[in-house]
Design a protein around this nucleic acid. Structure first.
Length: 806
RNA sequence: GCGAGCGUGGUGAAAUUGGUAGACACGCUAGACUUAGGAUCUAGUGCCUCGCGGUGUGAGGGUUCGAGUCCCUCCGCUCGCACCA
């Protein structure tokens, strides 16, 4: 008997699939819409480190699912590519002088080799890399569509700056006050930026969440990130001189309790209203606030600080003269950058009032009476007090009533705010898509004409970012200097590049039509495949990539360029794979598992099986090398069975039942991506049939088909051993006969007062009466029911008899 | 603080509508085969007990003939956001 030489077998079939283009897919109109499925993996950034065991987890899951769908008559689009612009290649270039393209192409080769070594069923003819001019031509083109729609604008505002990466960051890229990529604490820097008005799409992005089948946690994260809140804008007149301070509040019902106001130190009114006596103190405070990092302004500084401006404003509801302060707990970027402080009912305002001895006035109470407040009372649903004509109203009624009154008086109106900020889109780096805009002294900002795209990256000698806020492109005179496409005047090109998110915002569309030179995607092909039916990837992109690409897609939909509003109908996040012992895998801990090593030792079929056997796809789970031996042993046994004498006899009923139960379980589990229990069932099948001296063809062949999506290489090889000429990948998934999935004899559980007392083997179709009769004849049941009164007998046919006694 | 999720053997985990808790696998124990084996095969393995039996799904309570599953209270862990007015 030949031994299971997985290395040879796996190479043989990978070559076969490649050469025969087994998984090439076309837009075949004979498949009805419901038999088309777009299954997408989040494409990797091709780092120098290569794949780790986390990558193949999601890829294996989608591969099994796709192979299963194909065997069930689906036309499946399942592509792979590379998110190949990005900082590591550029940083490596700075260190070594190697062009990032060279490093990137090498890394891609390595990634492709590793991915192919797992035998995934991608249509490699659709492979894309975001750094190629053929691809980023269309990234630039889409940018221009957003620009022309008025969604891109230039701004000189303080942005998050990573001193390590020497580039600006979007809000979404800041985690715990540090750079998402390198962890360096971010600082604030005033820079000219290209921004996307993603806030325009806040409601659209929020509402879209209702139409998609995503996990609650990711929806919740996006929901929180967008952070929509409803309230009112209210104007407070300044006591002296002209003008007013406008505030945003979600609790207009507490207006009567506003005893002071606070402006953000960056607020434009601060200089105007600060009195002569307070000038020095205010200036000092502003200076200090400007120097603090975001982290210091928030996490580290729970004690409130602030300075009085010397000015007063008038509370519009009661005419009270209230002081105006500045404090860095008020963010310039949220609402109007100014608040009315209601210390009685807001914890932050309470702390501030206590710190500076400001008055506290209760305007909401639980029962409508006024008492002495010893701590802040958030008053989410109370009754208005000390509030003039609104006294006695419930909070939920008082809010609209006050808004209506504010509106009629012309001092306020209903308003909606978002936590979501506009998207800082430009990066001061080299290795990214050049933003296709020209700055003309006559015409202003002018887009590069679409027929001149792609605007390619120039060769540079130094990749070092200037660090002053200009990319290395700024130093390439012959690239920067150009003619205005409109008037021909001497102009300069935009030197910022796009963030890495740009390429991944629309890559799933390019896979649909990757070689199209006329359009980013053809309409017919787009509507053939979209939306993505299943998208699998890491949870770390819950707000970043998944919010940005939804934004682009919503815009493309509004422009009539795509057929669906949402790009990804169903999303699943695979759980993280931890190192042995449940600790995070990291280079520094030296516990990183390299898939190449696992494949060399056990083969990729074992690797695939183990990745899915560890547990449910979505949960975090630790890698255990010892665990692979279980699935490896299983495959060896399957191999043994294939290499025995194959019998063409009629299978026994017992064999048929073993098979049909397995088909049923695998059909259910594979379609629901519950691969771990599916694999367990195949192990049971092998256990049940392994002891036979000969292998029965009639049950073994269907079994191998069930195995094919899971361990495709060994399945192909065995299929050939069994005498078949064609690939098993195109075979039809077996069907089960319900009748054969049921046992003739079943175990009936006998209980007394809910406690298990005996088990009986009985015919599956036994009647209730016969079950009960058998129960009462049982010795142990007799023992437990004697001398007791039988209150009730509960019988569930096919399950149990429970005798209730007293 | 807010939002989401999760607590089951020594370990990873199973468990239609509430109906035999621990499938499958790792590990462990014993045995077989072997010159040898970290190979393979067989049997056993939640805990307490010699056994009968008792007990057991984070803790406590409730509903029910019956709860890992449903309801309430609490505890613990993970992830995300965090002075968002």
């Amino acid at each position: 008997m030949s031994s299971y030489n997985f290395t040879e077998i796996e190479k043989k079939w990978q070559n076969y699939w490649d050469e025969n283009k087994t998984f090439k897919v076309t837009e075949d109109p004979s498949f009805p819409k419901e038999k088309r499925m777009y299954v997408l993996d989040m494409f990797p950034y091709p780092s120098g480190a290569g794949l780790h065991v986390g990558h193949p987890e999601g890829y294996t899951a989608t591969d099994m699912y796709c192979r299963y769908l194909r065997m069930n008559g689906y036309n499946v689009l399942h592509p792979m590519g590379f998110d190949s612009f990005g900082l590591p290649a550029e940083n490596y270039a700075i260190k070594t002088g190697t062009h990032p393209e060279k490093t990137t192409v090498e890394n891609i080769e390595n990634f492709r080799r590793q991915i192919k070594s797992l035998g995934f069923c991608y249509d490699w003819d659709r492979e894309i890399s975001t750094h190629t001019p053929e691809y980023y031509k269309w990234t630039q083109w889409i940018f221009l569509q957003l620009y022309k729609k008025g969604l891109a604008y230039e701004a000189e505002t303080p942005i998050n700056w990573c001193p390590e990466c020497k580039t600006g960051l979007a809000n979404e890229e800041v985690k715990d006050g540090g750079c998402d990529r390198c962890g360096t604490p971010v600082t604030r820097k005033n820079l000219r930026q290209w921004m996307f008005q993603i806030t325009e799409y806040g409601d659209s992005l929020l509402e879209g969440l209702n139409d998609i089948n995503w996990t609650e946690s990711v929806k919740a994260m996006q929901n929180n990130w967008i952070g929509r809140s409803e309230g009112a804008n209210v104007k407070f007149k300044l006591e002296k001189g002209e003008g007013f301070i406008e505030v945003y509040t979600t609790r207009p019902d507490t207006l009567f309790g506003a005893t002071y106001m606070v402006l953000s130190p960056e607020h434009s009114l601060v200089n105007k209203i600060t009195t002569e006596e307070q000038k020095t103190a205010v200036e000092e405070y502003k200076q200090k606030a400007a120097l603090k990092s975001d982290l210091e302004r928030t996490d580290l500084a729970k004690d409130k600080t602030g300075v009085f401006t010397g000015s007063y404003a008038i509370n519009p509801v009661n005419g009270d003269k209230i002081p105006v302060w500045i404090s860095d707990y008020i963010l310039i970027s949220y609402g109007t950058g100014a608040i009315m402080a209601v210390p009685a009912h807001d914890e932050r305002d309470w702390d501030f009032a206590k710190a500076f001895n400001l008055p506290i006035k209760q305007v909401v109470s639980e029962d409508g009476t006024v008492g002495e407040l010893t701590e802040v009372y958030p008053a989410k649903d109370g009754i208005a007090v000390n509030s003039g004509k609104f006294n006695g109203m419930k909070t939920k009624d008082a809010i609209p009533a006050i808004i209506e009154w504010l509106d009629s008086e012309g001092i306020g109106h209903k308003s909606v705010n978002y936590k979501l900020r506009d998207w800082v889109f430009s990066r001061q780096r080299y290795w990214g898509e050049p933003i296709p805009l020209v700055h003309c002294p006559e015409c202003g900002t002018v887009p590069v004409p679409e027929d001149q795209l792609p605007l390619t990256l120039p060769q540079v000698t130094s990749y070092e970012p200037s660090g002053t806020g200009e990319s290395p492109l700024a130093n390439i005179d012959e690239w920067v200097n150009c003619e205005c496409p409109v008037c021909g005047a001497k102009s300069k090109r935009e030197t910022n590049t796009m963030p890495q998110w740009a390429g991944s915002c629309w890559y799933y569309l390019r896979y649909i039509d990757p070689k199209n030179t006329q359009e980013f995607v053809s309409k017919e092909k787009e509507s053939y495949w979209m939306p993505v039916g299943l998208y699998v990837g890491g949870a770390e992109h819950a707000v970043l990539h998944l919010l940005y690409s939804r934004f682009w897609h919503h815009v493309l939909h509004d422009l009539g360029l795509v057929s669906t509003r949402e790009p990804f109908y169903r999303l699943i996040n695979q759980g993280m794979i931890l190192g042995e012992g449940g600790i995070k895998m990291s280079k520094s801990l030296g516990n990183v598992i390299n898939p190449d090593d696992v494949i060399n030792e056990y083969g990729s079929d074992s690797m695939r099986l183990y990745e899915m056997f560890m547990g449910p796809l979505e949960v975090t789970k630790p890698w255990a090398t010892s665990g692979i031996s279980g699935v490896s042993r299983f495959l060896h046994r399957v191999w043994d069975m294939a290499n025995r004498e194959i019998s063409n006899e009629e299978p026994t009923t017992e064999q048929l039942k073993s098979l049909h139960k397995t088909i049923k379980k695998l059909t259910n589990d594979t379609s629901k991506l519950e691969f771990n229990t599916g694999i367990a069932q195949m192990m049971i099948f092998v256990k049940e049939n392994y002891k036979d001296e000969k292998t029965n063809r009639a049950i073994f062949e269907p079994f191998i088909k069930l195995l094919a999506p899971y361990a495709p290489h060994i399945a192909e090889e065995i299929w050939e051993i069994l005498g078949h000429k064609n690939t098993i990948a195109n075979e039809t998934w077996p069907e089960f006969i319900e009748e054969l999935t049921k046992d003739d004899e079943i175990t009936i559980v006998l209980q007394v007062n809910g406690k298990l007392r005996a088990k009986l083997e009985m015919p599956a179709d036994i009647s209730k009466e016969d079950m009960e009769k058998a129960a009462f004849e049982n010795e142990n049941i007799k023992l437990h029911t004697q001398d007791k009164t039988i209150v009730k007998v509960i019988s569930i046919p096919g399950k149990l008899v429970n005798i209730v006694v007293k």
